[in-house]
């Protein structure tokens, strides 16, 4: 039982999508950005934009 729960936690942890990955997906799918530097700049912009809100 405990092993099952631990395995589930491990699985969930491994499936966790980071905030960076989510923002990179927004950059690719919504803004159609393909350049790695531009995607990174967009992530930075969102960090500052969210932070200052």
């Amino acid at each position: 039982m405990i092993t099952d729960i631990k395995n589930r936690e491990v699985r969930l942890m491994s499936e966790k999508v980071s905030n960076r990955e989510t923002l990179e997906r927004v950059a690719r799918e919504v803004l159609q950005l393909t350049d790695k530097e531009q995607i990174n700049a967009f992530v930075c912009l969102m960090v500052y934009s969210i932070g200052l809100s």
């Binding site: 980071s18 905030n19 960076r20 930075c44």
Partner: peptide
């Protein structure tokens, strides 16, 4: 950027 995005900012947003 990653520390702010994954650890610090989630404390507020």
């Amino acid at each position: 950027m990653n520390y702010l995005l994954e650890t610090v900012l989630p404390r507020r947003f």
